[in-house]
């Protein structure tokens, strides 16, 4: 048979699990991003069946110990569009309430021959612990303040798509792209995974927020740190607003919501010095007009809903790589 030697040559995927971006190589990150476009095309089909038989007969278990609509439905849809069988377990109705350990619950799921377990848990390290002791492929869908790797991958994929269209270069990467991440960086697994992912891909990351919400290790991660919003976004190609967890204010990490809005809300006024075509992103769900102005969230520069669409494709790519690796 003729060798199709024009395929993109990249490092093969060898990992059983996806726990964090930190341990991935740049090549592995790019492999996921390069695998996703064909899955965007599946979801965008105008006629016929919006699914492909890559995971036919496989079992994907969504196991969520924290409230999540967007991420859970995104994983569930990704599995269904790969023709996998899906089970969703919410902790509120599961045996965790009866005192069963994570290990015992997963051992019982595995006795039913699960192939992928998608885990969201409030403890950092929960996904890695299960991955090391069980045969199923584990995808970390958010563990405490640690990581949320598929969110970072879908964000990088979204940014890369915009850069490629802007430069009219289908091969363009994120090298030199400036991304400003605004808000509660210290308590955000989305920010942490994004910082690892974007810096691996060669982007320049600036984090910005109240001093109490910035991580102490910021400078050590090789990124710019500032408390001045206008400075952070002056040269930015992308402004990424994080969700403010309102309960942080009760812990006195910032004095008042009104002050946060005045100093850190991403709005038209804050963007006055920014490049005119700056891309606006947010991981959702948005506190409208608190961390992000409605006119920007719904405006022409917003990639918020595109992030959601791309999330399904990225999660399809990850599941395909985990189960169909050579």
């Amino acid at each position: 048979m003729a060798v199709k030697d024009t395929a993109v040559e990249k490092a093969a995927w060898t990992r059983k699990d996806l726990i964090g971006i930190e341990e991935l190589t740049r090549e592995e990150v790019e492999l996921v991003l390069d695998t996703a476009p064909q899955f965007v095309a599946v979801s965008e089909r105008q006629s016929g069946i919006k699914k492909v038989p890559l995971l036919q007969g496989r079992l994907v278990v969504n196991w969520f110990f924290e409230a999540s609509t967007r991420t859970r439905t995104s994983f569930e849809l990704a599995a269904k569009r790969l023709t996998a069988d899906t089970l969703t377990m919410n902790a509120s109705v599961s045996s965790a309430k009866k005192g069963e350990s994570l290990h015992d619950t997963l051992a019982n799921i595995e006795a039913m021959h699960s192939d992928i377990v998608v885990l969201r848990h409030s403890y950092a390290g929960a996904a890695r612990m299960l991955a090391e002791h069980h045969a199923s492929s584990v995808i970390n869908a958010g563990d405490g303040y640690h990581e949320h790797p598929t969110q970072a991958l879908l964000d990088a994929f979204t940014i890369r798509g915009h850069i490629r269209r802007r430069k009219d270069d289908p091969e363009a990467g994120l090298d030199g792209v400036r991304v400003a991440i605004i808000g509660d960086i210290a308590h955000s697994r989305v920010a942490r995974s994004n910082i690892y992912c974007l810096t691996k891909l060669g982007a320049h990351v600036t984090i910005c927020g109240p001093r109490t919400l910035l991580p102490v290790e910021g400078e050590r991660m090789g990124i710019n740190v500032t408390t001045d919003l206008r400075e952070a976004i002056r040269d930015a190609d992308v402004v990424y607003a994080l969700r403010i967890q309102l309960e942080r204010q009760q812990k006195c990490l910032f004095p008042s919501l009104r002050e946060y809005i005045r100093l850190y809300r991403v709005d038209k006024e804050a963007l006055e010095d920014a490049p005119p075509n700056v891309l606006i992103m947010h991981p959702g769900p948005i506190n409208r007009d608190i961390e992000l102005a409605t006119e920007l969230a719904d405006g022409p520069q917003s990639a918020v809903l595109e992030q959601v669409s791309n999330g399904v494709a990225i999660r399809m790519a990850v599941m395909h790589l985990l189960l169909n690796k050579s």
Partner: peptide, 13 residues
């Protein structure tokens, strides 16, 4: 599938 390449260029979709 297990011997197939995963990464594709946009024009290979």
């Amino acid at each position: 599938l297990r011997s197939a390449k995963s990464a594709v260029r946009a024009e290979q979709v």
